[in-house]
Design a protein around this nucleic acid. Structure first.
Lengths: 343, 343
DNA sequence: ATTAGCACTCAAAAACCCAGAGTGCTAACC
DNA sequence: GGTTAGCACTCTGGGTTTTTGAGTGCTAAT
């Protein structure tokens, strides 16, 4: 059944996919012979297309329309037919220009990166901030806001900052805070955030801490700081998606927006993408998420030094310009990695 | 020309508005007499409606459709007809429950507030973070990330945090940073952020600093930290807007999303809303922004202590449930003010 | 002043028709 | 054999026409 795909079959499949990517319309034998210079008659093409349909690479929405590629076809396409174009110099320049971290908040940089991805690809950009837990602890700082309220600021090696408001039962003076801070910073130096957490839980039970009210207070506070590691995700350029003809229909639009409103869905996907290093492509139903039907995701991980710390990418319709977008994602990820290098 | 509106006229106008709010369909004399128990025949109602149209309170999209309220009508409605309902206990409880700042990032709290506004109103929630420049300086902290890169963390009185990555030319040691920090914190205590900035620019030129390389370095660094006060705005629940029948049409949807993509538009509006204290309502074209045609904005300022520091609200179609939404916005703003109190 | 009655209007929905793009099949062709 | 021309058939989308029904404005009666 699964007979080998002939060279000609491939060529025609490619042509169909490219036509469909360009027009978003089902493509028929006739149009195909015209737009692509295949030295074949429509009738022949029809036969081949019929075969491709049988093999599961094409479907027709109804009997007398043209045919559209299936997810399986896209998969084949990106795996073995597509040749990735190089980025133009302009593109590269623009990306470099807009990924500049000096003088900015780190999350601001990531948001800008997301915006950048969206505007250069003209689909949706998505960036997942470095997972905090995997980062290396750098410094913990307490700032007293009022008698019962203080602010904990946690800084990681690569410059990511998290802060938490903390309400305390007892009054705490500024000098207490400084002492606590010093103690903790000493203790926790060089650990990853996840390790820090373990350490704190462990210390909570130790003899020494048990008899020092202030220390135990400090531990409790920093524990509070660490829990709830809500990973930040930046999704930008949703309006771009609305431009795509396949989503012109209002109901579909709404569905998509609802889906992306809670970041949970994307988080799942990106988490999965982080398992492997480098560029990855999820096509439509491959993600096994119903909501992602008709959409593809191109991601790449980025790193600081040797550790994969995050992932970024582009979400668009399955019918997206893979050849154009893949290098954008790839290059951007590499650039971010370079920027985040701790030297 | 501008004759006085009769009592009956008001009653009917109210009925029209309420019907239109409920159905989003032009309302005719017949339907009106049925839904609202007016002891009048359709014909009479027609006459009155005709008068209202002449006075500019109603328009008809075409001759044989019902009528819809104009912006002017909404204005009259919210000013002198509408009676604001009280919040239900449930509503109040939910708002309280979800506005909880302990253990969270301050911007996380604001984002959640925005989400809350959107979900309780079922329109779009919007929150503008406290304008940083107006805040009172609390602490400035430098963290050394690597030999040429450091992180400046600026904390304001109410717990808002901004941080910036800074690249330096010369190498700077950790102890230098501590000394700089101490010096600056001493100097800048109690000033507003805006004043801090002025002060720094002034100090840059002073004799004392000119001859102390380290100090001048510190000044330059903190200047870098302060510039670009990008006010954060949180807009949530855009998908809610898509649910509204008046935006079912795809082109309109896209337009709205494009408009809100750059936060500039909203920023303008919110800035204006911040001029006056308390709840404010902008109806459709009143905002003089073409993009806001067909949309209304209900805002309220919130404060820490006696100072107005930010503004939050709900954006929806002009045809929105004012009576329901106004108290939501009002209550939320008050709650946030309470939470931000420095004690 | 109010209302019943009536002729008139208009947009939206339904019904209808037609052209065009596409298919599958068969038979001829190289 | 693979390829192609020819043909009958199918379906969708777009345009036109018809119908329907809610709504209006006016006039005349209450």
């Amino acid at each position: 059944m699964e007979e080998q795909l002939s060279e000609r079959g491939k060529r025609i499949l490619e042509a169909v996919i490219e036509d469909y990517i360009a027009t978003a319309e089902p493509v028929g034998s006739r149009t195909l012979t015209k737009s692509h210079a295949l030295a074949l008659s429509p009738a022949t093409v029809r036969n081949v297309m019929s075969d491709l349909e049988e093999m599961g690479f094409l479907t027709s929405p109804h009997t007398s329309a043209g045919r559209i590629p299936t997810d399986k076809a896209y998969r084949l396409y990106v795996n073995s037919i597509l040749e990735v174009r190089n980025l133009t110099r302009d593109n590269r320049e623009e990306i470099k220009r807009r990924c500049q971290l000096a003088g900015k908040d780190i999350s601001e940089v990531l948001k800008e990166t997301s915006r950048l991805l969206s505007s250069t690809s003209s689909y949706m950009g998505v960036v997942m901030a470095p997972r905090f837990a995997a980062n290396v602890f750098r410094q913990l700082e307490f700032v007293r806001l009022s008698s019962h309220r203080l602010l904990a600021i946690l800084v990681s090696q690569n410059g990511a900052v998290q802060n938490r408001l903390i309400e305390t039962d007892h009054e705490i003076g500024q000098d207490d805070l400084v002492r606590m801070g010093n103690y903790l910073n000493e203790q926790l130096k060089g650990l990853t955030i996840a390790q820090v957490r373990e350490r704190l839980l462990f210390e909570m039970k130790s003899e020494k801490v048990r008899y020092d009210a202030m220390l135990s207070q400090a531990i409790v506070l920093s524990e509070a700081t660490l829990k709830s590691d809500d990973t930040q995700i930046f999704v930008e350029g949703q309006a771009n998606i609305l431009e795509q003809p396949e989503f012109h229909d209002a109901a579909k639009m709404r569905e998509i927006f609802r889906a992306f409103e809670s970041k949970g869905l994307i988080l799942d996907l990106l988490d999965r993408a982080m398992q492997a290093e480098g560029v990855q492509i999820f096509i439509g139903s491959e993600s096994h998420l119903v909501k992602m039907e008709g959409m593809s995701l191109i991601t790449s991980t980025y790193m600081t030094g040797k550790d994969t710390v995050g992932v970024l990418g582009v979400i668009g319709p399955t019918r997206m310009g893979y050849g154009r977008v893949i290098p954008i994602v790839d290059y951007t990820a590499k650039l971010i990695s370079r920027l985040l290098e701790t030297e």
